[in-house]
Design a binder for these strands. Structure first.
Lengths: 218, 218
DNA sequence: GTCTATAGACTGATAGAC
DNA sequence: GTCTATCAGTCTATAGAC
């Protein structure tokens, strides 16, 4: 209620939100502090006043976005009261909703993963939810041991689930262009995948592999 | 054989190859012409002598890389003498080999797809091999009509094949970090996927969907 | 064709008035 | 807290010697 300008939120929050939009769509190097000033409608000098430097502001945004992308389903995957397939359904459902709301998030995070893996490991808390310690990993091990599901390297399972869920959003501009679908129509297909991907994963996990007899080639 | 310096190839080719490496790993904005000069071992001024501007050089590299990524399997997919599943096997096999040799290619192309879709459509010849006109599309339509494979929106099929093949390379630095696998071990898993992905796709296509009875919801 | 030197434009950051 | 004005550094591109 200071009511000096048309500022609705605090200036600091305005800058941060504008920085999130610009950084995630153009990356660090292509973003000028002047872009953030214009996007947020605040004076250029205030960016350095609130956030010491462009790099510092970027790091704050980056850590938040990576955590949103990586940690948002760890609760679901660690729930001891749901089955493995229910976990996958819930996680994929949650992820697709989030990706429809944040379509630029995967490419941003993947760029960080590819260009600054050491900074990412350094600044984002990874150790606290080691994938192998989640409850879903225990369930997967048990079901594999009992023969309920096919033996498969966990990297393949994780790759498949994440690939099928995330990649269509990374390739969306291309696939939409080639297919002539609108954003709404494309997102409708993505929502269909909430049911389809768990079904496909389940099918894959319960169908014998391509070389059931001799998978011991060098 | 001009033998003035230790130049093996022509200076122009040296610059171009260095530019490819630097641009594909850091992107346009983060790359300085000085980086390319150092990487190629030639004088800074020669970059502008051979390639008018940084932007012009980038566009040349970009078009070549996108075409390598997108057009390299159109011959396989348009072969009238192979079955649909053989096409998928051959295309995936070819792709995984190419991605092991060019691990930075997918993230580079996907950035271009997300940040400059209009430029990409403008500068890269798309129209000449419309996906719907490839022979594989005809085979897919026939097999769907005859009931040999499950009806599925073509976007889902294309998404699935490309996702399962390409995404594990985009997420490689992260997945390797989390799993503790070396580059060699990880690439070995990727090679396994040459056989696994066609098998999974075939399984998906020949297993009834999650809602076989009522898939006519609004 | 290749080099040095530098012009000309832009960027991140800050000093200092209000 | 917010603004204007500006500095110091860096970048692309080119002029001109060889």
């Amino acid at each position: 209620m200071t009511a000096k300008k048309q500022n609705n939120g605090s200036t600091e929050a305005q800058i941060k939100e504008a920085a999130r939009r610009v950084f995630t769509s153009k990356g660090f190097a292509a973003t000028r502090t002047r872009d953030i000033a214009e996007e947020s409608g605040v004076n250029l000098a205030l960016i350095n006043y609130y956030f010491r430097s462009k790099e510092n502001l970027y790091n704050i945004i980056m850590v938040e976005q990576v955590q949103l992308f990586l940690h948002s389903v760890s609760g679901i995957l660690n729930d001891p009261h749901t089955t493995l397939f229910t976990k996958l359904e819930l996680a994929i459902d949650h992820y697709i909703d989030m990706l429809i709301d944040n379509p630029g998030l995967p490419i941003f995070v993947m760029n960080e993963v590819n260009n600054n893996p050491e900074k990412l490991v350094e600044r984002v808390g990874f150790s606290n939810h080691n994938a192998g310690q989640l409850y879903i990993a225990k369930q997967w091990a048990e079901m594999t041991f009992s023969g309920e599901i096919q033996p498969i390297h966990p990297i393949h399972l994780i790759s498949n689930v994440v690939s099928l869920t995330v990649f269509p959003f990374i390739a969306a501009p291309l696939l939409r262009n080639r297919s002539g679908l609108s954003v709404t129509e494309y997102n409708e297909l993505m929502k269909q995948r909430k049911a389809l991907i768990p079904h496909w994963i389940s099918t894959i996990l319960t169908t014998p592999g391509p070389d059931t007899q001799n998978n011991k080639q060098s």
